[in-house]
Simulated assay, not measured.
Amino acid sequence: MVFNFFNAFIINLAIIVSVTLGLYFFSLKYSLKNKQLDDEFLLVSKHLEMSTVAKIFSGVFIGVMAFIISKNGIPVGDYRPVDVRYLPVYFSVYYGSPLIGLITTVTLTLFKCIDYLINQGTPTEFFHNIIITYFILGISILIYRKNLSPRKGTFLCLLLTLVVRATVLMIAFFPHIDFLFFYKMGINFSIFSALFLFTGWLIHRAISISEGIHVYRTSAVFDSLTGLYNKEYFYFFLDLAYNQAIREEKTFALAIIDVDDFKQINDTYGHLVGDKVLSEISTILKNNLKPESIMRNCRIGGDEFAVVFKHGEYDTDSFFQGVFEQLNELISESACQKKVTLSVGLVEFQPDSSQPSNQTVQDLFNLVDETLYEAKKSGKNQLIKKELPIHTLKK
Score class of each variant (00 low, 15 high):
46 K>F: 07
47 H>T: 14
48 L>M: 14
48 L>T: 12
48 L>H: 11
49 E>F: 14
50 M>F: 05
52 T>Y: 14
52 T>M: 14
52 T>E: 12
53 V>F: 15
54 A>G: 10
54 A>Q: 15
55 K>M: 10
55 K>Y: 07
55 K>R: 05
55 K>L: 06
57 F>I: 15
57 F>M: 13
59 G>S: 05
60 V>R: 02
60 V>M: 12
61 F>Y: 14
62 I>A: 07
63 G>V: 03
64 V>D: 12
65 M>F: 11
66 A>V: 00
67 F>C: 02
68 I>E: 15
69 I>D: 13
69 I>N: 08
71 K>E: 15
71 K>W: 04
74 I>Q: 06
75 P>E: 10
75 P>Y: 03
76 V>H: 03
79 Y>N: 10
79 Y>T: 15
81 P>H: 06
82 V>S: 04
83 D>T: 05
83 D>F: 04
86 Y>N: 15
87 L>Q: 10
88 P>C: 00
88 P>N: 05
89 V>N: 07
89 V>D: 12
90 Y>Q: 07
91 F>D: 12
91 F>T: 10
91 F>G: 05
91 F>E: 12
95 Y>Q: 00
96 G>F: 01
97 S>F: 02
97 S>G: 05
98 P>G: 00
98 P>R: 03
99 L>C: 07
99 L>R: 03
102 L>R: 00
102 L>F: 12
102 L>P: 14
102 L>M: 10
104 T>N: 06
105 T>R: 01
105 T>C: 02
106 V>W: 09
107 T>M: 01
108 L>G: 01
108 L>P: 05
108 L>F: 04
108 L>D: 08
109 T>E: 05
109 T>K: 00
109 T>D: 06
110 L>E: 10
110 L>P: 09
110 L>V: 15
111 F>C: 11
111 F>T: 11
111 F>P: 12
112 K>N: 07
112 K>I: 05
113 C>V: 09
114 I>S: 02
114 I>E: 08
117 L>N: 12
118 I>N: 09
118 I>W: 14
118 I>L: 11
119 N>E: 14
119 N>G: 02
119 N>W: 09
121 G>V: 01
122 T>M: 07
123 P>L: 00
127 F>Q: 07
127 F>C: 08
128 H>C: 08
129 N>A: 09
130 I>P: 13
133 T>R: 04
133 T>L: 04
134 Y>Q: 04
134 Y>P: 09
134 Y>R: 02
136 I>A: 00
136 I>L: 06
136 I>Q: 05
